[in-house]
Design a protein around this nucleic acid. Structure first.
Lengths: 215, 215
DNA sequence: CAGTGGTCTAGACCACTCT
DNA sequence: GAGTGGTCTAGACCACTGG
């Protein structure tokens, strides 16, 4: 392996270039950069792909070309907002396969999709759900309509790669890294996939609690 | 763009192959797969790279070749453990540049690096830190030695790409997606970078609190 | 030394979008 | 139609590791 791969050098050059350009300006096409920097298009693309993953460049199709990403507005979402289903969202899709009822919706902020929320429920526990569900926040709907009481929940968070389907919903390329938040309680199994470049998960910690439960 | 890119098909084939192989088995070399599947090595590599990012394959250098990743043990870490610096870790490195004191350590579980922890402090606030620091958990050291009181903190979590330096510390390839946890209080500014394939962040949520603070 | 993964090249075709 | 990004190929060289 070369000490410094050429695509690193390319990336550095492109970052310089990026520093001078305001958001939404067109970025030079790959073939031109390949020519100017004296590297093959493949090498340039490798550098550009990292910049795309980092949210610095936005790729368009056809004649749109690549553009400089505007300073990204990062939305801060708390676990509560995700669990309570309080983020603004597009209409939910309801699917039933055997006894599993799946509710899926796209989280939206400012016309941009920032995440996808999925919840699995026990179908027989909620008769007529598909007909009665009115797109209010899911937990509120369940507690008012079916008198559900939710217990404490355990949530965890990790990084995954967007499947082709999720990528389409989120407006990113397949295999883009995303933030995955999951939780589980007596009633539901849910997870939210967030665009890492558009959303942060905020957490509170109360000082003084829990000095020693490592594991 | 083809309806189904060939590297998707390759990935599916490789996943089949993976299903039959136990952990730590050598995986067929790229050139052989390229031959058998009738695709160019570049295409095979694109498929394999995604499997590496997903933690299914492990690449070695030279004659080691690629091997099947053993069932990954995922360590669950709480925010408290990260903040209180209670994860087992390698010796911390202390750097001072101007008035900023940086403490950095590698989090280890079972001989594997799973994360990197960095804390920035105001150097003049902690005279003689470098000489006195004894590798106990950072917060405990600060509170016993310097009588520091920590206030409440605000933490947040997102996905980033590993810089070449972090990648080396974590034993992953540069630009691997990682889980980034940051927090801020009156005393410190800290962040932890976790290998997404080796560590999850656990969160608790108390039921009933906070019905409506969306934003 | 042989074989591995990592990088790089020059070229090709495709689907798409703007003009 | 021209130009863009997305994909794919065949081939090359390198650094590294094991027998």
């Amino acid at each position: 392996m070369p000490a410094i791969p050429r695509y690193y050098q390319a990336k550095a050059r492109l970052l310089d270039l990026l520093g001078d350009l305001p958001g939404n300006t067109p970025f030079p096409p790959e073939r031109e950069l390949s020519d100017v920097l004296g590297m093959s298009r493949t090498t340039i693309r490798k550098a550009m792909n990292e910049l795309v993953l980092e949210g610095r460049l936005i790729r368009g199709t056809g004649r749109q070309g690549t553009t400089v990403a505007p300073p990204k507005q990062v939305h801060r979402l708390s676990l509560d907002v995700l669990v309570q289903d309080l983020a603004t969202r597009e209409q939910a899709a309801v699917r039933i396969t055997r006894d599993v009822l799946t509710v899926e919706s796209v989280l939206v902020r400012g016309d941009e999709p920032i995440g996808v929320r999925s919840t699995c429920l026990c179908a027989s526990r909620f008769p007529g759900f598909a007909e009665r569900y009115d797109d209010t926040p899911l937990r509120r709907f369940l507690s008012t309509t079916y008198r559900v009481r939710f217990g404490d929940l355990r949530a965890w968070c990790t990084t995954t790669l967007a499947t082709p389907r999720l990528a389409r919903l989120l407006g990113v390329r397949p295999a883009t890294p995303v933030l995955s938040v999951s939780w589980l309680d007596l009633v539901e199994r849910s997870w939210v996939v967030l665009r890492g470049d558009r959303a942060h998960l905020t957490m509170a910690q109360v000082q003084g609690s829990a000095q020693f439960h490592a594991s």
